[in-house]
Amino acid sequence: MKITVDEDKCCGAGSCVLIAPEVFDQREDDGIVILLDAEPGAGQHAAVREAAAVCPGAAIEVSE
């Protein structure tokens, strides 16, 4: 699994961090997404897919 995030689309609502805190974080100074792990292990895949599906800015792309 490979993840990319689009900072311009991110609206900083933090849904991804609530679901997959080991993969996503938010910048301290504006709440925009930080990708901690672009190729997470299998244990994270379900959470990452969920985060991508619910991201209000459609800012998370996942390719398998």
Binding site: C11, G12, A13, G14, S15, V17, L18, P21, Q26
Partner: peptide, 12 residues
């Protein structure tokens, strides 16, 4: 505005 205020609303 959103980015300034948003930094308070991080999931962390």
């Amino acid at each position: 505005w959103r980015r300034l205020v948003g930094k308070w609303f991080t999931a962390k």
